[in-house]
């Protein structure tokens, strides 16, 4: 089945705050985590931050996002009646307008190409409110995610509240210390992709330096089964990677 016909919700996409909420529920529902994580964080801070570094927001453009996302954007633009499009474009930021102007071909195609070739890091600011209103919802939501939850240097801080074998809250943060935590697991986004796909053993990743752990090693070692459960739960969840 082609991906174009499939519908995806925001919480299908990794890494988004919405996906994190799904992860929270899956963790909380996991019987295995209830067993392996029993006593975790009881009387001490067991909350985790997953620090995902170097999301390729500078290297990638909008048309590097999953196919169904940018195709919906392209269709949204090219299917607008030309006069509506012209009205929308009147409010475009200057550099976007110039970019569209400098291209060859019919206006809808030029406009679509200009937006598709925008760097991810620049997308939130280059997409003006008027355009957002005519954009597919998923694109609008994703832009909001990028704007609010990915730092300028391409970092995502996912905070996971863990206690006694359950997960009581999750969120994303602007900075590492926005919320109290007991542990930080840090690594490049690529490693996180491997990890949540189940292709990387978390303990092996720590031992080989692919991920770095900051926190009480004694606790982590005592609960290494719970750490594995957490990655198992992540890899069992459906997800589509934004990058």
């Amino acid at each position: 089945m082609s991906t174009q016909e499939q519908q995806f919700e925001l919480d299908d996409y990794f890494p988004t705050t919405a996906w994190l909420t799904r992860y929270q529920h899956a963790l909380d529902d996991s019987q295995e985590l209830e067993d392996t994580g029993e006593g975790w964080g009881v009387g001490w801070n067991g909350d985790f931050v997953f620090e995902m570094l170097n999301l390729p927001i500078e290297e990638r453009t909008v048309n590097d996002l999953p196919e169904e996302v940018w195709e919906a954007l392209e269709q949204g633009i090219t299917q607008l009646p030309e006069d509506t499009l012209e009205t929308v474009l009147e409010d475009a930021p200057e550099d976007v307008a110039d970019g569209i102007e400098a291209r060859d071909g019919p206006l809808p195609e030029r406009a679509a190409q200009e937006l598709l070739e925008t760097k991810i890091s620049e997308a939130p600011e280059k997409v003006w409110p008027g355009l957002r209103r005519v954009m597919p919802d998923i694109m609008d939501d994703l832009l909001t995610e990028l704007e609010e939850n990915v730092t300028d240097d391409g970092t995502v801080y996912a905070w996971i509240g863990l206690e006694d074998g359950g997960c009581y809250d999750t969120t994303t943060m602007d900075t590492l210390d926005e919320r109290d935590h007991g542990f930080v697991l840090t690594g490049d986004f690529d490693q996180w992709v491997d990890l949540v796909n189940g292709d990387l053993d978390v303990v092996e990743a720590i031992m080989s330096g692919k991920l770095e752990l900051d926190g009480d090693m004694q606790k982590i070692l005592q609960y290494s089964d719970a750490a594995l459960t957490m990655t198992d739960v992540a890899s069992d969840l459906d997800k589509r990677f934004l990058f």
Binding site: V203, E204, G209
Partner: peptide, 25 residues
Amino acid sequence: GARLAGDMMFDTLDLDAGSATEFMQ
């Protein structure tokens, strides 16, 4: 220590006889 062990056993020797979890356990 875990990093040093990991470098030698997984990187240099590419061992697949056991699991990292067993080692850390």
